[in-house]
Design a protein around this nucleic acid. Sequence first.
DNA 1: AGATAATCATACAAATGCAGTAGGAATATA
DNA 2: TATATTCCTACTGCATTTGTATGATTATCT
Lengths: 144, 144
Amino acid sequence: MKISTRGRYALRLMIELAMNQDGDPVRIKDVAVRQDISAKYLEQIVSVLVKARYVRSIRGPQGGYRLTRKPEEYCVGDIIRLIEGDMAPVSCLEDEENHCPRQAGCVTLRIWKELDEAIRSVLDKYTLADLVQWQEELSQNYVI
Amino acid sequence: MKISTRGRYALRLMIELAMNQDGDPVRIKDVAVRQDISAKYLEQIVSVLVKARYVRSIRGPQGGYRLTRKPEEYCVGDIIRLIEGDMAPVSCLEDEENHCPRQAGCVTLRIWKELDEAIRSVLDKYTLADLVQWQEELSQNYVI
DNA sequence: AGATAATCATACAAATGCAGTAGGAATATA
DNA sequence: TATATTCCTACTGCATTTGTATGATTATCT
């Protein structure tokens, strides 16, 4: 039960954008180098973010990407779920209503629901702003 | 990020065994029918449980499987992890020590650690005895 | 002893998802 | 017009998942 590279890459990309919100738009190529990710692969990932209006793209030279909102308005769970799909640990819990015919007598479901809640609460607890702040704290430690 | 059928089937199998601890050994065939799982597939899963000494097998006619310990001595996480492998949400957290070269400057790691903890705490919170009890409560409700 | 009922072992296979690679089209800048 | 960037889509290799299939082994019962 792993988070895929797509989800993790998307989050790292979003952190980079959040940290450069005041400067020029951020190019995929640069992120790819800094984060050691295939640029072509990152392109596919960012295109999902663009379509969801999480980021805005600027084409042509001096182009790149920018967040459309403030970092504190993106919670980690939103980004992960957008790229990764539903994060429910079992498919019974994906939709609003459970379609599993066994659900009435299924005691394991109770565990999965609790697990789902736990996962959700961690992922929805932090925003990009938190991650940016941690990153800045980290960098400071290294400079000193 | 889903729990596989193998892990879920294993848990349901273990619940069946826990509920029949006093009676005859439980046959795979019967569990397969009741739980609507391929018997041959279940055989493969149970063999892992046998090798780990989570259950004992009795061969030949009137044979089947039995728990080796009391239901309250199996926590859900143990069963899931045995069948499913490590449940850490990222591979960096699989081993005792993190081998990722990026770890020192990786802020997302903090999220994944917290997520790992949350998952672990839910899965390790309940034992087979809890599940058996819930199952019995459920059945009662239907009888009345 | 022999038929039978169960577990045990292993190989195979179809489907799916993951993690990219590849090639080029579209667009904006200088 | 050359260039730098995003955008689009197809393809591919690999691993994992979810089983099937076949038969060997072992114990029981008549």
